[in-house]
Design a protein around this nucleic acid. Structure first.
Lengths: 331, 331
DNA sequence: TTGAAAGCGCTAACAG
DNA sequence: CTGTTAGCGCTTTCAA
């Protein structure tokens, strides 16, 4: 068997309570005693059992993270922000991919709750009533990161997607375009819907009609961007400016346009969304909406720590600032 | 307080042992009893406490994953493979970023061991004696993924990096080049060292001298690829073919070359490594060494499950096949 | 097929 | 400053 707190106590001629105190840095221990205990901990190679501690103290210092797909750059960057802050506050992270599958998401929430996580950071979309019920009845705090719950009933960290979509479109319009297109993923995801609304709003402002031929719905992949161009340029009304819902899509769009023998930005201007590292990995470099992805993760985790410590929080639905960075894919 | 197994037992008029049995799917329960218990579990909204279970059973069904940087595409893809297989075997994952920092790596191993993980998947490089000591004295199995331990004393899953490096270089040589360069990350990382050795071996085979001007060491980023070109083409002996240690570096290299007004592959041929999704996200599309990243993670996790179940394993140091895929950045 | 009881290793009053 | 003593919620013999 492994060496336990009890072995240390016996060997050091103190009670296990004392050992527990020095392990937990409780100041109520005489320095000499502390030193003696530390020494025998070292000798015996004692390693505290966090599971036992968790059971006794009802705190596991681990938080659950539910994420659509860690292999997607956007989410892995988010996850990095979460882990860094978690680490800073001495938490560990149980990370699970949901693939946006509702059943799996619900199951994951329950598994994590069974494992007695102290809190959960949730990323996803299409929040159903079942999701909300789980969130609301959860015994531990839950914070949404980069995922929108329209009624703001659950703490969250986001940017203003609609405003960002509006601004991106506006930039294209201000450059003189009247034939705009929006390339997005499945529209159920609320963030993309908000971007879409921003797009529509900007067009309506100059009394441009928005019909389905202006919008291409695929997934969030590079390939989907390629396909979008195929479809969009197969029409009589070819767009001269494209707003893509993610950088990866935007890369696909730009390459698709180039494959057609057209020039970006001379013939077609393109603007992306997220400002992942991809934005610099293309020629022309990509103009895009800067979404502070890492920060969203970091702030969400920070917010969660406040709830876990039962601290006062002023704003439970944080909106982080975004900006537009103009590079070479727009004029 | 939360509802416990004891509450269920009382409410269902059985002992907690029986409840435990039905929760754990133990067949020695009369169907009628099982049904009754299940019903009151439902009514009471009982959720088993995995921490208590872990303490009593000494199995937590969670494994630790130590990873250099989840926001790096290569590793996030690996992590995805790990999580998918973990999930398949009902394990959860505690994921932590190490940034290749030795102290942090050691600390993480200990934290995870304290949390009583059933096993660990480790990714990193520069394995010190301290690492090996931790690995060897660990009370639970550890598997290395995409990280090389020269003596093969620890179970691992890799590809043959040296052979792959050799083949990539050979392809360039066979295309008639004599001025080759290798762009890599910090050379301490053993996988990159192996690639380097393959590069050297291929050159020596045709009696080409290898000196430092042929090799550029930076980090594994796109920016570093850009810098490499700057440096390499600032010499009198400019390379006509470049082998990059990662796809991300290769993208930087290609763009750097293009920024110089040169053409890829006409003036300079480039081959990458990994075959991440980036390889398709560039023009010309990138020829590269296909490293089955996802599979490395998946196989590593699978191997770990075998150790955790104390199954027989035939080969503890798995070498997965690699291949070279020719796209448009080489002739 | 079921129950009783002894822990798993630690924290947290409480008492001294 | 230190020790005693209950648990935390569950698994797991051992009996019945």
């Amino acid at each position: 068997m492994n060496v336990t707190i009890y072995d240390v106590a016996r060997e050091a001629n103190v009670s296990m309570a004392t050992v527990s105190r020095v392990v937990n840095g409780n100041p109520n221990v005489k320095p000499a005693t502390r030193k003696k205990v530390l020494k025998t901990i070292e000798e015996l190679g004692y390693r505290p059992n966090a599971v036992a501690r968790g059971l006794a103290s009802k705190r596991t210092t681990t938080v659950g993270v539910i994420i659509p797909d860690i292999s997607n750059m956007f989410f892995s960057e988010l996850a990095r922000g979460i882990d860094d802050i978690a680490n800073m506050y001495k938490y560990n992270i149980i990370l699970s991919n949901s693939d946006q599958n509702i059943d799996k998401e619900i199951k994951l929430i329950n598994t994590m709750l069974e494992k007695q996580v102290d809190g959960i950071v949730y990323m996803g979309s299409r929040l159903t009533d079942e999701h909300l019920k789980e969130f609301k009845t959860s015994p531990v705090p839950i914070v949404l990161a980069a995922t929108i719950e329209p009624t703001n009933a659950i703490p969250s960290v986001n940017i203003d997607y609609e405003e960002a979509g509006y601004e991106a479109t506006k930039l294209l319009i201000d450059n003189g375009h009247t034939k705009l297109a929006f390339v997005t993923g499945l529209d159920e995801t609320t963030a993309n819907k908000a971007k879409h609304q921003g797009f529509v709003q900007a067009l309506e402002e100059i009394e441009l009609t928005v019909d389905q031929t202006n919008v291409f719905r695929g997934d969030l992949s590079y390939q989907s961007g390629l396909k979008a161009v195929e479809s969009l340029f197969d029409q009589t009304e070819k767009p001269t400016a494209i707003f893509a819902a993610s950088d990866e899509i935007a890369l696909g769009v730009i390459h698709g346009i180039q494959d057609l023998g057209l020039n970006v930005p001379a013939d077609v201007e393109v603007i992306g969304f997220d400002n992942t590292r991809l934005a610099m990995m293309i020629r022309p470099t990509l103009s895009t909406v800067v979404q502070p992805v890492y920060d969203i993760g970091a702030v969400a985790m920070r917010l969660l720590t406040k709830y876990m410590n039962k601290e006062e929080v002023e704003e439970s639905n944080v909106i982080l600032p975004h900006q537009i960075i103009k590079r070479s894919s727009t004029k």
